[in-house]
Design a protein around this nucleic acid. Structure first.
Lengths: 191, 191
DNA sequence: TTTTTACAATACTGTAACGTATGGACATCC
DNA sequence: GGATGTCCATACGTTACAGTATTGTAAAAA
């Protein structure tokens, strides 16, 4: 029997609610983000929720903002020229996704992208980070010598593959094979 | 005021329910497939639904079966060697997706793929059609002279791109440019 | 013509949510 | 140490659905 949270030190802020909501989103998609369920998960009642948020849609808005901020921050940590060659870097990023490191992050991303098919605000947030990611890898392709137009087309193919691969229901073993992975990288990166 | 459907000629079969369900699925995703809503859409009450289906999950199962059957049928119509060169054919299929012809079909497919992330049966159905599609285009790549392993890796990249591209929130104009499209095709198809 | 079949309407129960109103507990500030 | 502010619990009203049980009705079969 989880005790009540009357103690001040255990009180919640919006951040905890958003974190919990992200968890539900990753697991069950948008419609599984429910305030009473979150409350139970946090050992708290709705009373707390409606103190921190106007309503459910307020939570969802803030969740999207928080997600975008996190993605942008993570990207800004990668813009610096860290001495790594552009093609090495492209291969490394690719590996991260193919290894399915961070499945939670991927699940959240997929859920938000599905959400974005129907919701304007979600779509807006996804557009923001897509634009930023494409800008970054377009830059990397440009550094490899691709002309601007080709570079951005390559970038688009690069990210399309990354997310599309997470959408296919296939034995992942086919992409664990080093040789296959190398040939895909060669194909996407070119020179 | 839509009149009641007591007239025999207007009576429904499972097919109509499944069709309506596919519509809701395309529009709003899995959680928008609700029996009372479908009933209203079909100018009928739940009484009819529970005659044709055991419960909601029964409808969903049949929807998945029906979707798979449709996809498999559509694929089987393309296996025949229609005299088209393999690379031409690959380019044509690619164009169909990039043109976003059949947005409804794409929406359904995306909704089902999202669904498959959490549901075992949905995942199974997606796996079935993925396997079949990959088998088909792997064959095309093989005809182009790729060795078996490379052919199936190319096929995987090909479909990953196709679905990933539908996931990115970008101005579609970037893929309407003929030159960009050609360079992507060249990249994916190779020789 | 009666009976049976196939489908649909009606009326109900149960449940899981959302949102609101209000009161209570703990800390902080005067 | 009383007043105030912050956060949470409780209790309520409402809605939207899933599912069941029962009755109704047009057409086909007997």
């Amino acid at each position: 029997m989880p005790r009540k949270r009357t103690n001040v030190s255990e009180r919640l802020g919006r951040a905890e609610w958003i974190e919990a909501a992200l968890g539900r989103l990753a697991q069950g998609g948008l419609d599984e983000v429910r305030v009473e369920v979150l409350a139970k998960e946090l050992n708290v009642t709705k009373g707390s929720f409606y103190w921190h948020f106007r309503d459910r849609s307020d939570l969802l808005d803030q969740l999207l903002d928080s997600w975008r901020d996190g993605r942008l921050l993570s990207l800004s940590g990668q813009v610096g020229d860290n001495g790594e060659a552009p093609d090495v870097r492209l291969r490394r990023i690719l590996d991260v996704y193919l290894d399915r490191a961070n499945p939670r992050g991927m699940a959240i991303e997929m859920a938000i992208r599905d959400w974005a098919r129907r919701d304007l605000i979600a779509r807006k947030r996804v557009r923001e980070i897509d634009a930023e990611r494409l800008r970054l890898v377009t830059g990397l392709f440009a550094q490899l010598g691709y002309e601007t137009n080709d570079a951005s087309t390559r970038a688009l193919a690069y990210y399309s593959f990354i997310f599309g691969q997470g959408l296919l229901a296939i034995p992942k073993s086919s992409l664990e094979n080093g040789r296959n992975r190398a040939s895909i990288a060669a194909m996407l990166i070119g020179k």
